[in-house]
Design a protein around this nucleic acid. Structure first.
Lengths: 205, 205
DNA sequence: TGTACATCAGTGAACGCGCGTTCACTGATGTAC
DNA sequence: TGTACATCAGTGAACGCGCGTTCACTGATGTAC
């Protein structure tokens, strides 16, 4: 890897990773700059060599999250080709997979309270993720007769909303609450019924 | 109203209202016990005459939210009768209406990080809300042939997830971001397509 | 290869702040006679 | 109706804490000659 730097080696990324760990198991509120520094084995003041402050650190964690998120969905979309339906469903599954595999990132992206427009880089990464889903929806829409075809951006908004809802309400390991269904199954069936509603899956199956 | 009490009159509710105001326009993080006390015109220590502490205050705000939420959805369900479909759709609309009209409550309920099992009263109120939606889903399910009828609790989970997703992603007034569609329309069309997928709405409309 | 110097990542102490919480208190309200 | 007492909602001062942030510093690393 990159050669070991001055003192720490790669403090910048170590701080981001520490922040993600903290966010993951203490919620967006539980994260503090000081504790992230401590977990990285460094004085709080050292953080300021790499970030403008607390919010900047979270924003960077979120940005990296959006990049991965977009990459994963893009990969799922590409892999699902050439069937528009398969590609779309794979993209939806990738959404949930990302949320489960990278809860720290997901929380930083959607629950930390930082605005997606905080920096141009963050906005760009978020836009890229949105575009992948929208492209998948556009491909899919072509199989619907134009006169009863909803805008592709609306379809993608519906799917995004349902996916986010499943993550927030059923995929989070809230102690004491258990989900009535596995989140994967819930999202899969939900999207399935929705797609049938669009006339893209045979109504009898 | 209740007669003006010892000193303040109705400090308990005033504190809850202040907390809701703060949560509404500063997010769940922005709320502090001290500031809620200040807004109610009272010393922070006074709060402890009515609540065990900060979390207890939030929990009570959330509980009141769930009660209202359940009442509103119940009312919508009743009003929508005798058509199961109309009742169901009205219930869904009531969900969004509640979230928009009482953002403080909604945030306290779903984003403040307090567990729904924190107190029996809170758990009960939350369960009641869930049951209303599930009853509406059960009624609706009866119009689906049994062999391709998903469990009613799954249908209600789908709708809850999509509703929550729309609220979180599109109904929140994040400055700088604007939603591509009005949240009402988004949820309405989303639920419509979903119901068509269940075979409950004529496919040609 | 060795020396002198420049760079700059991380230190450690300090800051002011607002937080949640505690405590002994006070004084307005309610109640018993 | 008036008086003595009990209750208890809210006060004000104090606490310890961890936070984010600043600053002058130090000493390891890199570079020029």
């Amino acid at each position: 890897m990159a050669k070991r730097g001055y003192h720490h080696g790669n403090l910048r990324q170590a701080l981001i990773d520490a922040a993600l760990d903290l966010i993951e198991d203490k919620g967006p509120t539980g994260f503090t700059l000081s504790e992230a520094a401590k977990q990285a084995g460094v004085t709080p003041a050292a953080v300021y060599r790499h970030f403008e402050g607390r919010d900047d650190l979270i924003a960077e964690a979120a940005r990296q999250g959006f990049e991965m998120f977009a990459d994963l969905m893009q990969y799922a979309y590409d892999t699902g080709q050439p069937s528009a339906l398969a590609a779309f469903e794979a993209t939806g599954r990738a959404y949930l997979a990302f949320a489960r595999k990278h809860p720290g990132h997901y929380i930083a992206m959607f629950e930390s309270g930082i605005s997606v427009n905080r920096t141009p880089e963050l906005a760009l990464a978020a836009a890229r993720a949105r575009e992948v889903l929208e492209r998948a929806a556009t491909d899919l829409s072509k199989h619907i007769p134009p006169e009863k075809r909803p805008p592709a951006s609306m379809v993608s908004a519906h799917i995004w909303a349902m996916s986010h809802g499943v993550v927030e309400l059923y995929a989070r390991a809230t102690p004491g609450t258990r989900s009535p269904f596995p989140p994967d199954a819930l999202l899969e069936t939900g999207i399935g019924i929705y797609l049938r509603g669009l006339g893209l899956i045979a109504p009898d199956i």
